[in-house]
Design a protein around this nucleic acid. Structure first.
Lengths: 204, 204
DNA sequence: CGGTGTGAAGCCTTTCACAGCA
DNA sequence: TGCTGTGAAAGGCTTCACACCG
């Protein structure tokens, strides 16, 4: 369920304030959804709420962390170190919850060897070995659109189970591999669409 | 409709190859969706297909560009010039279709004045003037989570109509303002969730 | 009382299947 | 004949409303 991360983040904020129980309504407010949705979603995890009281924050955090697999360690490899790849490599939030960047990979021989933070850029040719030896679970594609499908294929062949694609291109992967995309151009165009179709404020 | 940008991109690829007509099935293949969906979606734009033939690529590109508002110019302001803000400021794809970055804004006085590409970083204090004078339509939030809501409020107060939020935080805006979010942490956690719940390959 | 858990209704999106037109 | 346009069916998600429990 795609809303669990939202609840998780909200619950961490609440826990920071040493609040021990929370109602579905409060949680909904913080997560930007409505209360019925919160209750339905959480009921799928099993019964963790107490009627008349709410949810115990600590229990719920643990349960959601488990559900989201945040108790595991998921090694991440970033492929493509242009502007975006660099920004991602330097991004703090990555390491936060079990997502550890363990490899930076680029096809450009002139980039190979240079350091970004604690890691050196490695050659795409060695992807198989890198993935196998470091147990890479998630591959991040930050290459130009034209190269995206090929990189995806290589990641899949190397045994990566999940891919996060930042390239503005449709990439296909086997059903057994999870794929999510983050597409700046698409987001902007959707905003543009709404801006274009904005209903003019009615004059009273 | 959130799929129009996908069709648009696919159609541009097709146009590049000097192909003049395309069937819903071909377009579906390129956009990574199914043919019925393509036809339903395009039928909302009016009748642009010819039975027995398909859609005329040129006409369809123009129609979708108009629908998405890509014939307009949408000035963009980026707020927050940390790692991500810098990457976005340098990102080529921005300028591509009417999305022109016209301002870089940060609250940090030590950053104000320094240049990133063609633009100098300006102070958040001047946001109102900047938005008004340059007609900024879209604000990009690339600040830490704690500052996100405040920046959003300031953007709304300044008159921005759309916001793209990269901060890992829920931000609320009036209904009259469009809001989209791009959240790396959430995407990773969703991938983690699926990786966690992956059905084990059955042994035959 | 207050707030969860959950059937049932409502709504929206997707898919099917085929009539009808070039 | 080939492919669009579109009712109708199917499916999934969201919301409502309230029984039930601490």
């Amino acid at each position: 369920m795609a809303r669990l991360p939202l609840y998780y983040r909200a619950l961490l904020e609440i826990a920071d304030q040493d609040i021990s129980t929370v109602s579905s309504e409060q949680l909904a407010e913080l997560a930007g959804v409505n209360a019925a949705k919160v209750r339905k979603d959480l009921s799928y995890l099993g019964t963790y709420g107490t009627r008349g009281v709410g949810y115990v924050v600590g229990e719920l955090v643990d349960e959601i962390a488990g559900e989201l697999g945040l108790t595991h360690d998921w090694p991440v490899a970033i492929v493509g170190l242009g502007n975006l790849g660099h920004a991602l490599a330097n991004y703090r939030g990555f390491g936060a919850r079990g997502f550890r960047v363990v490899a930076l990979v680029d096809i450009d021989a002139t980039k190979v060897g240079s350091r970004v933070g604690d890691l050196a850029i490695e050659s795409l040719d060695n992807l198989d070995t890198i993935v196998a030896e470091r147990g890479v679970a998630i591959g991040v594609i930050a290459v130009p659109a034209l190269a995206a499908q090929e990189v995806a294929d290589q990641l899949v062949a190397a045994g990566v189970g999940s891919i996060l694609n930042f390239a503005p291109a449709v990439v296909a992967v086997p059903e057994s591999v999870s794929l999510r995309k983050v597409d700046l151009a698409t987001e902007l165009q959707i905003l543009s669409f709404y801006q274009q179709h904005r209903v003019q404020p009615s004059r009273v």
